[in-house]
Amino acid sequence: MAHLTLSQVGISFTRGGKTSEVLRAVDLSIAKGEFVSIIGHSGCGKSTVLNIVAGLLKASTGGVLLGGKEVNAPGPDRAVVFQNHSLLPWLTVRENVALAVDKVFRGKKTRPERTEWIEHNLALVNMMHAADKRPAEISGGMKQRVGIARALAMEPKVLLMDEPFGALDALTRAHLQDSIMEIQMRLKNTVIMITHDVDEAVLLSDRIVMMTNGPSATIGEILTVPLKRPRRRLDLVEDATYVHARAAVLEFLYARHAQPAVLAA
C-alpha cells in the first residue's frame, strides 16, 4: 500500500459570491522513502496541493491518506519547510528548533535527549556553529538550513518542502540541494517538494509530477527519473537519462502547457 495517497483532491475558493475551482481531481500515490517533486507554472496551484497535504488548507473534494489514516489538520507528521524559512525572529537558531522538538517530543524524550536531538539535527544541516545566533544575523541559505533542521527534527512521516530554495541565489541553492540529497540518502525520508526549477526537479526527484495550468489545474503527467543515487550534478550534465528527463519536463512546461502569457509572447 502506498505511504501517502491523494485521491480525487479538489479545492474551490469562494470570494465575493464567485466560486473558482483551483484544483480538480488530483490523484497521487507516494511510496515510503520516495522523493517527489511537483512542478508547474506559477499560479497553477502546486503550493495548494502541498498545503492540503500539510492540513493548512481543507480540500473541497477527495482526501489525503497518510499511512492508511485520513489527515485533515496540520501536524508534525507532515512537517513543512516553508518558502520563506518562517523562523521566529525573536528566537535563536537553537530555540527555533527547540520550540518544535520540545512540543513534539514532550513526554517521549527526556530533556537531555531532546537537547541532544536538537543539536543532532542542527549538525545534520551544518548549522551548529550559528546555534546561538538569531535569524537576522545569518544568511538566507543558513535560515533555510535551519528551517530544514526544524522540519527534520519532527521526524515527519512525509517532509513537505514549499519551493525551499526559491529565494536563494544559484550557488547557495546548489549547495543546499546537495545537502538535501545527502540527508535524504541517510534518513530515507518521504519528501514532496514544490519547485519551478526544472534542473532542481530532475536532480533531486525519483518522480516529477507536472501540473497543468489553472483554473481547475490537475496532474498532467508524472515522469519517473531513473537516475541512480548518489547523484552528482557534474556527472549528470551530459548523462543521457538526465538530459532526456530534463527535455521531457521542459517540453511539458513550455510546449504543451505553456502559460497563456508565454504563448502570446
Partner: peptide, 18 residues
C-alpha cells in the same frame, strides 16, 4: 501576526495558551 508564524504553530500543534 504573519500567516507564516500561524502555520508554524499549526504544524507543531501549539495549544492556544502556548
Amino acid at each position: 501576526i504573519p500567516q507564516d508564524y500561524r502555520n508554524v504553530s499549526a504544524v507543531i500543534r501549539l495549544n492556544p495558551i502556548e
